[in-house]
Simulated assay, not measured.
Amino acid sequence: MHARYSSGYEGCPSTDMAISTVAKSSWHPLGRRLGTLAVWVNRSYSTGTVALKGSSHKIEPEVDFNWLSDKRDAERLKQGFRFIVRLLQQDSLSSVALDPFPSALNARAKLVSKVTSTNYALTSFLALLMDASPRLRRGLIRRVITDGDSISDLVNDEKHLDRYIRQNVIPSWHPTSTCRMGAAADPGAVTDPSGRVHGILGLRIADASVMPFCPRANTNIPTIMVAEKLADTTLRDGRRS
């Protein structure tokens, strides 16, 4: 299930946040026993950089997302975390969501998420411990999964929550706007409204990078629309010439 909602944070538009729930957190036996409530900033304001490291197309650029460089993003993520905590306190959830805990896609979680026979055996054993008793389950969560961080620790300590979020923030996999459209006089613009790259003859860009900022939704359909529109523009300009 998925929902968009408004943070109400000053200066932010409506439906600037999103929350999603999944019944299985990973492919392995342990992941099948863990549900997830995830919240993220749907309209982010932090900006990063993309820099070329060489003239060859085979050399990947250097990308620095610079997460949470804008205060609005950090504050709304903390607000979103508290929102999830309030949801978990509702009777309809607290009766079925046993022993909730803060989770992060850290290095250990990524390692265990790899599809291997070793990980399957390890998580099968951990899953048996989770099922054995509430006491074992809570001990496993505290000592192995969370490194001691608890929901109450985070919501009751603003600095702890801020540090936790900054250490564990991850992308929502929809980066855009590295070559945004704009007037030739705009120093931050790369292309004109037809996708032509300023200052370079015969080169156009027709993908999500021309968006002025990341849209408040999945980027699939908007990117298709951009490509279709700029393809039509390119064809029309070709007929005129």
Rank of each mutant, 00 (worst) to 15 (best):
D99V: 01
Q167E: 11
F101N: 06
V85S: 06
P171Q: 11
L105Q: 11
T116E: 04
S94L: 03
F81S: 14
S94T: 12
I84E: 02
P134G: 14
L93F: 13
I151L: 10
G182S: 09
A74M: 08
L111W: 10
M130T: 11
P100K: 10
A97C: 15
L161Y: 07
F81G: 13
R142D: 14
G182A: 08
P100G: 12
R137M: 00
Q89D: 15
V169F: 07
K114D: 04
A97Q: 05
A109Q: 15
L88T: 04
R180T: 05
N106G: 07
V96T: 13
L77E: 12
T116V: 06
I141M: 07
R166V: 01
A121I: 07
S94A: 15
P102A: 09
P102L: 08
S92V: 15
Q79K: 11
L136C: 08
L161Q: 09
R163S: 15
Y120H: 12
S172Y: 10
Q89C: 02
L122W: 00
S150G: 09
Q167W: 01
C179N: 14
K78E: 14
A104C: 04
Q79L: 11
L77Q: 12
A183K: 03
S94W: 00
A121C: 05
R82I: 03
R142I: 00
E75Q: 13
M181P: 00
S133F: 02
L88N: 12
E158K: 06
L140I: 09
S133T: 09
D73I: 04
K159E: 15
T178N: 04
A127Q: 09
S124F: 03
W173H: 14
H174Q: 13
V112H: 07
G148F: 04
Q89E: 15
A97R: 06
K110R: 10
K78I: 08
L111K: 14
V169N: 10
R143I: 00
R138N: 10
V155W: 02
S150K: 01
S133C: 08
T116L: 02
L88V: 02
N168S: 10
S103W: 08
L140P: 12
L111H: 09
R143P: 00
G80D: 07
A97G: 11
T123G: 04
R163F: 09
S92M: 13
S95H: 01
R138G: 02
F81Y: 14
V115D: 14
F125W: 07
L88Q: 10
D91G: 06
A97K: 02
